[in-house]
Simulated scan of single mutants.
Amino acid sequence: MPQKEQLTVRRPAPVDSDAAQVVARMRALDSHWPATDGVAVFNRVYLTVMEEIGRRIAAGEFPDRRAALTLDVLFARRYLAAVEASETGARPPACWRPLFQYRRHPGVRTTQFALAGINAHIGHDLALAVVDSCRALECAPADLENEFDRVGDILTLMEERIREDLMPGPDLLEIADPLTHLVGAWSLDRARDGAWSAARLLWGVRELPGLAEEFTERLDAGVGLVGRCLLTPWR
């Protein structure tokens, strides 16, 4: 049986027009979906971060502009591919399925939708995007570590924005509120560390496609399980 090509196809590195197309697609989705849609909640936060990364790349804050642009675009395309799969009736990766399934559930809070999207995107997509980028740039993960860290620092803004804009105020968020414990149990830093380790592992077994495919499937399923927990309805 022929091996799948998900991790072995080499594609050209993205350029500025590719980044512009990604942002334009996310803006179109934002205008199309209702504001209360769970995927729209994540999309709005992510769009803000994409625009910020674009401004910083243009300002020369990334020493290797080409590497930063490549990682940024290939990372975002993973999310957009999941959206396209959902909209065309195909099956998105397991990590994204809970968010698409619960996107209109009245018992799921806005913060949960945003965190579930971040969990899927960082816990699963980021590792594969690093591998995609290495293939496009013909380099190893270690050559992208600075860009990975800088993009990760900006992604931290996404979590901070969620906590500032989407969490209830101190008078509403009591220590006994289950959402307090749910949000506190998930860590962006741990997810980033896990993504970097997964990327290095996948790169290390790139000549063993069967093993790489098995690990990718298990990573996808594990991140999906966490996402389902993050989307536990409260009413």
Rank of each mutant, 00 (worst) to 15 (best):
K4T: 03
K4R: 10
R10I: 01
R10M: 07
A13N: 07
P14L: 05
P14Q: 08
D16E: 15
S17H: 12
A19W: 12
A20F: 10
Q21K: 13
V22N: 09
V22W: 13
V23G: 02
A28K: 13
D30C: 11
H32D: 14
A35S: 12
D37W: 09
D37H: 14
V39H: 05
A40W: 03
V41Y: 07
R44P: 03
Y46F: 15
T48D: 14
E52K: 14
R56W: 05
D64S: 13
R65C: 03
R66M: 01
D72T: 09
D72L: 03
L74E: 14
A76M: 10
R77L: 15
R78Y: 05
L80Y: 11
V83G: 02
A85Y: 07
T88N: 12
R91V: 10
A94C: 08
P98V: 00
L99G: 05
Q101I: 01
Y102N: 00
Y102V: 01
Y102I: 00
Y102D: 04
R104L: 00
H105G: 03
G107P: 13
V108M: 05
V108H: 04
V108G: 02
R109G: 06
T110V: 08
Q112F: 02
Q112V: 08
F113Y: 15
A114D: 06
A116D: 09
G123K: 10
H124Y: 15
D125A: 15
L128D: 01
V130R: 04
C134Y: 01
E138T: 02
P141G: 02
D143T: 00
D143R: 05
D143P: 00
N146W: 02
E147V: 02
F148V: 00
G152Q: 01
T156Q: 12
R161I: 04
L166H: 09
P168H: 03
G169Y: 00
P170H: 09
L172N: 13
E174Q: 11
E174T: 12
A176W: 15
D177E: 11
L179W: 02
T180F: 14
H181I: 07
H181P: 00
D189N: 10
R192T: 06
G194N: 12
A195S: 15
W196D: 02
A198G: 03
G204H: 13
R206K: 10
L208K: 12
L208Q: 13
E214Y: 13
F215D: 07
L219S: 12
G222K: 14
L225G: 10
V226G: 01
C229G: 05
T232C: 05
R235F: 09
